[in-house]
Amino acid sequence: MADKIKVGHVHMSGCTGCLVSLADNYGGLLTILDKYADLVYGLTLADVRHIPKMDVALVEGSVCIQDKTSVEEIKEAREKAAVVVAVGGCACYGNITRFGRGGQPNQPQHESYLPIGDLIKVDVYIPGCAPTPQLIRNVCVMAYLLLKGNKEQQALATKYLTPLMQLAERGTEACGCDLMYDIINQGLCMGCGSCAAACPVRAITHEYGKPNVNREMCIKCGACYAQCPRSFFNFDVMNEFEGIMELIDGALK
């Protein structure tokens, strides 16, 4: 189809878990590649050596600033892609690579890992470790509607993507502490339990209805804060949940 968008997967310092998550859409991924997106770049999936021009770059992993190639590639991705999406905790916030201090063979001098937003402007965040197949899928469908849809679809995609763009503007630091700083300290927590459900390392429990974060266990993926209904809650999208879920299901049939 001529109307497909061009998507690339740019691999920085990450574990490939984000790419596996994308693949875990199974049939849905095939539909996406069939109808909506051409994969024009991807280390393991496309036989292309240099980052080509593309509509959407899905970037996985943080940038090791001691690795020249990585630094060049992330800058090139920004130049070549209309939209840069940070996929997963490492690209958004550094995640587990925040704890890297070098000293590992065969590149012991590789010790500094930065979220991509510290080096380039990032348009959309998909936090989480790993980010979920379903959120990656939703963003892919919405990105397609934004670039190729009719006016109404573009409006919906804009509404949907706005909070994920605002997360990108919010910054490159995340921690379970965000629940304290930006939710409880702000008088916004209502004890629903979303943060504990979202945490991939079970660092969050609820004590008398409020989250308690084991900060030693927190890997700084940003899932808890982004999942919290009091980090963002866009009524114009949420009130249409039934229709939007039908639309996404329909798009992947």
Binding site: Q134, L135, Y160, L164, A226, M238
Partner: peptide, 12 residues
């Protein structure tokens, strides 16, 4: 509903 539309940490 947020978890269904924006499943950041709610895989599957």
């Amino acid at each position: 509903r947020k978890g269904q539309l924006y499943p950041v940490g709610l895989r599957d």
